[in-house]
Amino acid sequence: MTESIDLSTDPNGAWEVLKGRLTVDIVEPLPVSTPISEDKVRFVCVSDTHVKTDDMTHPMPDGDVLLHSGDFTFTGSLSEAENFNKWLGSLPYKHKIVIAGNHEVILDKDSCMKPRPAQEVITNATYLQDSSTTVYGFKVYGAPWTPEYHVMAFNLTRGEPLREKWRKIPEDVDVLMTHGPPLGHGDLTWRGDRAVLT
Protein backbone atom coordinates (compact mmCIF):
# COMPACT_ATOMS: atom_id res chain seq x y z
CA MET A 1 0.00 0.00 0.00
CA THR A 2 1.38 3.42 -0.96
CA GLU A 3 1.30 6.14 1.64
CA SER A 4 -0.84 9.03 0.37
CA ILE A 5 0.56 12.54 0.55
CA ASP A 6 -1.64 15.54 1.36
CA LEU A 7 -0.69 17.81 -1.52
CA SER A 8 -2.97 20.54 -0.21
CA THR A 9 -0.25 21.43 2.28
CA ASP A 10 2.54 21.28 -0.33
CA PRO A 11 1.82 23.46 -3.39
CA ASN A 12 5.28 22.81 -4.90
CA GLY A 13 4.69 19.06 -4.66
CA ALA A 14 1.15 19.46 -5.98
CA TRP A 15 2.47 21.25 -9.06
CA GLU A 16 5.02 18.49 -9.76
CA VAL A 17 2.31 15.82 -9.53
CA LEU A 18 -0.44 17.68 -11.41
CA LYS A 19 1.33 19.84 -14.02
CA GLY A 20 1.12 17.18 -16.72
CA ARG A 21 -2.59 16.62 -16.09
CA LEU A 22 -3.84 20.21 -16.08
CA THR A 23 -5.43 21.70 -19.15
CA VAL A 24 -5.31 25.47 -19.33
CA ASP A 25 -6.86 27.72 -21.93
CA ILE A 26 -4.98 31.00 -22.07
CA VAL A 27 -7.29 33.97 -22.52
CA GLU A 28 -5.67 36.94 -24.19
CA PRO A 29 -7.08 40.21 -22.85
CA LEU A 30 -8.47 42.63 -25.38
CA PRO A 31 -6.50 45.81 -25.98
CA VAL A 32 -7.84 48.61 -23.78
CA SER A 33 -8.84 50.59 -26.86
CA THR A 34 -11.16 47.84 -28.20
CA PRO A 35 -14.71 49.25 -28.48
CA ILE A 36 -17.40 47.59 -26.39
CA SER A 37 -19.70 45.36 -28.41
CA GLU A 38 -23.46 45.52 -27.84
CA ASP A 39 -23.77 41.71 -27.93
CA LYS A 40 -21.01 40.96 -25.43
CA VAL A 41 -20.30 41.56 -21.73
CA ARG A 42 -16.88 42.96 -20.90
CA PHE A 43 -15.40 42.14 -17.50
CA VAL A 44 -12.57 44.38 -16.29
CA CYS A 45 -10.43 42.57 -13.71
CA VAL A 46 -8.08 44.29 -11.26
CA SER A 47 -6.58 43.65 -7.84
CA ASP A 48 -3.86 44.83 -5.49
CA THR A 49 -4.44 48.53 -6.04
CA HIS A 50 -3.22 49.16 -2.46
CA VAL A 51 -4.56 52.75 -2.09
CA LYS A 52 -2.91 53.75 -5.38
CA THR A 53 -6.08 54.45 -7.36
CA ASP A 54 -5.33 58.19 -7.42
CA ASP A 55 -1.87 57.49 -8.88
CA MET A 56 -2.87 55.17 -11.71
CA THR A 57 -1.00 56.15 -14.86
CA HIS A 58 -3.60 54.65 -17.21
CA PRO A 59 -7.36 55.14 -17.07
CA MET A 60 -9.49 52.13 -16.24
CA PRO A 61 -10.63 50.33 -19.41
CA ASP A 62 -14.23 50.57 -20.56
CA GLY A 63 -16.42 47.67 -19.58
CA ASP A 64 -19.71 46.45 -18.18
CA VAL A 65 -18.55 44.73 -14.99
CA LEU A 66 -15.61 45.64 -12.73
CA LEU A 67 -14.14 42.77 -10.71
CA HIS A 68 -11.71 43.81 -7.94
CA SER A 69 -10.04 40.78 -6.34
CA GLY A 70 -8.79 42.36 -3.12
CA ASP A 71 -5.96 44.30 -1.54
CA PHE A 72 -7.54 47.67 -2.12
CA THR A 73 -6.06 48.87 1.20
CA PHE A 74 -2.46 48.80 2.38
CA THR A 75 -2.71 48.91 6.17
CA GLY A 76 -6.32 47.72 6.27
CA SER A 77 -7.60 50.92 7.84
CA LEU A 78 -11.17 52.15 7.69
CA SER A 79 -10.12 55.39 5.99
CA GLU A 80 -8.33 53.45 3.23
CA ALA A 81 -11.43 51.30 2.68
CA GLU A 82 -13.66 54.39 2.62
CA ASN A 83 -11.41 56.08 0.04
CA PHE A 84 -11.54 52.94 -2.09
CA ASN A 85 -15.34 52.94 -1.85
CA LYS A 86 -15.41 56.58 -2.95
CA TRP A 87 -13.22 55.69 -5.96
CA LEU A 88 -15.61 52.84 -6.82
CA GLY A 89 -18.47 55.34 -6.78
CA SER A 90 -16.68 57.48 -9.37
CA LEU A 91 -16.39 54.63 -11.90
CA PRO A 92 -18.94 54.24 -14.71
CA TYR A 93 -19.28 50.42 -14.71
CA LYS A 94 -22.85 49.12 -14.59
CA HIS A 95 -21.82 46.49 -12.04
CA LYS A 96 -18.90 46.47 -9.60
CA ILE A 97 -17.99 43.37 -7.60
CA VAL A 98 -15.34 43.31 -4.86
CA ILE A 99 -13.73 40.73 -2.61
CA ALA A 100 -11.23 41.35 0.18
CA GLY A 101 -7.58 40.42 0.13
CA ASN A 102 -5.09 39.70 2.89
CA HIS A 103 -4.64 43.45 3.56
CA GLU A 104 -8.32 44.14 4.33
CA VAL A 105 -7.95 43.61 8.08
CA ILE A 106 -10.84 46.02 8.80
CA LEU A 107 -13.28 43.54 7.18
CA ASP A 108 -11.98 40.35 8.85
CA LYS A 109 -13.58 39.64 12.21
CA ASP A 110 -10.84 37.13 13.08
CA SER A 111 -7.91 39.51 12.56
CA CYS A 112 -9.34 42.85 13.68
CA MET A 113 -10.22 44.07 17.16
CA LYS A 114 -13.06 46.23 15.79
CA PRO A 115 -14.02 44.90 12.37
CA ARG A 116 -16.53 46.77 10.26
CA PRO A 117 -19.32 45.04 8.35
CA ALA A 118 -18.38 45.08 4.67
CA GLN A 119 -21.86 46.27 3.65
CA GLU A 120 -21.27 49.45 5.68
CA VAL A 121 -17.85 50.11 4.14
CA ILE A 122 -18.31 48.95 0.53
CA THR A 123 -21.53 50.65 -0.53
CA ASN A 124 -20.62 51.37 -4.16
CA ALA A 125 -20.16 47.71 -5.18
CA THR A 126 -21.39 44.23 -4.42
CA TYR A 127 -19.10 42.70 -1.80
CA LEU A 128 -18.69 38.93 -1.94
CA GLN A 129 -17.35 36.72 0.85
CA ASP A 130 -18.14 33.05 0.35
CA SER A 131 -21.14 34.21 -1.63
CA SER A 132 -22.30 34.87 -5.17
CA THR A 133 -24.20 37.30 -7.33
CA THR A 134 -25.48 37.09 -10.89
CA VAL A 135 -24.82 39.75 -13.54
CA TYR A 136 -25.91 39.44 -17.17
CA GLY A 137 -26.70 35.77 -16.52
CA PHE A 138 -23.20 34.98 -15.22
CA LYS A 139 -22.90 33.62 -11.69
CA VAL A 140 -19.93 35.25 -9.92
CA TYR A 141 -18.63 33.76 -6.66
CA GLY A 142 -16.08 35.45 -4.40
CA ALA A 143 -13.79 34.01 -1.71
CA PRO A 144 -11.04 36.15 -0.09
CA TRP A 145 -9.14 33.30 1.64
CA THR A 146 -5.40 32.77 1.24
CA PRO A 147 -2.87 30.46 2.91
CA GLU A 148 -1.33 31.82 6.11
CA TYR A 149 1.22 34.54 5.48
CA HIS A 150 2.47 36.49 8.48
CA VAL A 151 -0.50 37.91 10.40
CA MET A 152 -2.85 39.09 7.69
CA ALA A 153 -6.57 39.13 7.00
CA PHE A 154 -8.52 36.16 5.62
CA ASN A 155 -5.58 33.77 6.14
CA LEU A 156 -6.17 30.10 6.86
CA THR A 157 -3.92 27.11 7.42
CA ARG A 158 -3.26 25.04 4.31
CA GLY A 159 -5.13 21.77 4.16
CA GLU A 160 -8.54 21.22 5.72
CA PRO A 161 -9.26 24.84 6.83
CA LEU A 162 -8.87 26.10 3.24
CA ARG A 163 -10.53 23.03 1.71
CA GLU A 164 -13.58 23.76 3.87
CA LYS A 165 -13.90 27.18 2.19
CA TRP A 166 -13.37 25.77 -1.33
CA ARG A 167 -16.12 23.17 -0.76
CA LYS A 168 -18.58 26.06 -0.46
CA ILE A 169 -18.01 27.07 -4.10
CA PRO A 170 -21.09 26.03 -6.11
CA GLU A 171 -20.50 23.88 -9.17
CA ASP A 172 -22.51 26.20 -11.41
CA VAL A 173 -20.19 29.21 -10.99
CA ASP A 174 -19.21 31.01 -14.21
CA VAL A 175 -16.66 33.44 -12.71
CA LEU A 176 -14.65 32.59 -9.58
CA MET A 177 -12.98 35.50 -7.78
CA THR A 178 -10.17 34.65 -5.35
CA HIS A 179 -7.40 36.81 -4.00
CA GLY A 180 -4.69 34.28 -4.77
CA PRO A 181 -3.78 32.56 -8.05
CA PRO A 182 -4.56 29.03 -9.25
CA LEU A 183 -1.93 26.30 -9.17
CA GLY A 184 0.79 26.84 -11.77
CA HIS A 185 -0.42 30.19 -13.10
CA GLY A 186 0.93 33.38 -11.58
CA ASP A 187 1.63 31.63 -8.28
CA LEU A 188 5.45 31.40 -8.39
CA THR A 189 7.01 33.73 -5.80
CA TRP A 190 10.43 35.36 -6.01
CA ARG A 191 11.64 32.64 -3.60
CA GLY A 192 10.66 29.90 -6.07
CA ASP A 193 7.73 28.67 -3.97
CA ARG A 194 4.15 28.42 -5.18
CA ALA A 195 1.70 30.66 -3.31
CA VAL A 196 -1.30 28.73 -4.53
CA LEU A 197 -4.67 28.47 -2.80
CA THR A 198 -4.56 24.78 -1.86
Rank of each mutant, 00 (worst) to 15 (best):
H179R: 00
T23D: 15
D25F: 11
S37G: 01
I106D: 04
L162D: 03
I99Q: 02
P115S: 08
I26E: 15
G63F: 06
M60T: 03
D54P: 00
F72I: 05
F84L: 04
K114I: 03
T126L: 11
P161N: 10
G63E: 09
M113T: 12
S37Y: 02
I26L: 14
F74M: 14
L30Q: 11
T146K: 00
E160T: 12
L197E: 01
G70T: 05
T49N: 08
H185M: 14
V27K: 13
E104K: 06
D6M: 12
F43P: 09
K40P: 10
D39E: 12
C112M: 08
R116P: 02
G13V: 07
L107T: 02
D62Q: 05
N83T: 12
A195V: 08
T2G: 09
T23L: 14
G101E: 13
D193T: 11
T2C: 11
K168R: 13
W87D: 06
N124E: 15
N124H: 13
H179L: 02
D187I: 02
M1R: 01
H103A: 04
W87E: 05
L107I: 11
S77E: 15
K109T: 05
V135W: 10
T146V: 14
K94Q: 15
M152A: 10
M56I: 12
V32W: 05
K52M: 13
K19C: 12
K114A: 03
M56C: 08
T134V: 13
T133F: 06
I36L: 15
V17P: 11
I122L: 15
L18G: 07
G159A: 08
P59A: 03
V196A: 06
D193N: 15
G184V: 07
N124P: 10
T134F: 00
E38L: 02
R42V: 11
H58R: 07
G180Q: 04
M152Q: 09
S132N: 07
V44M: 02
D54Q: 05
V17M: 15
S33G: 03
T178F: 03
P29D: 02
M60F: 09
V41P: 09
N155V: 10
D48P: 14
Q119E: 12
F43C: 04
A118P: 10
V135T: 15
T23A: 11
L88F: 00
L22A: 07
H185A: 13
N155W: 03
G142H: 02
K40Q: 14
L91T: 00
N12M: 05
P147Q: 09
Y141D: 00
T178S: 07
Y149I: 11
G159P: 10
G142K: 01
S37C: 05
L162E: 08
C112E: 06
A195F: 10
R21H: 12
N12W: 05
Q119I: 04
A143V: 08
G180F: 03
F74N: 15
G20H: 02
M60P: 06
S79M: 14
Y127T: 00
A153T: 06
K114P: 00
G159K: 03
T2W: 11
S79E: 15
T53H: 09
Y127V: 01
S69K: 01
G13W: 04
P181C: 04
L67H: 05
L66C: 01
R163A: 14
Y93R: 01
R116W: 07
E82N: 04
T189L: 14
K19D: 12
L156I: 09
V65M: 07
L7A: 09
Q129V: 13
G20V: 00
E28F: 04
F43N: 07
T146S: 13
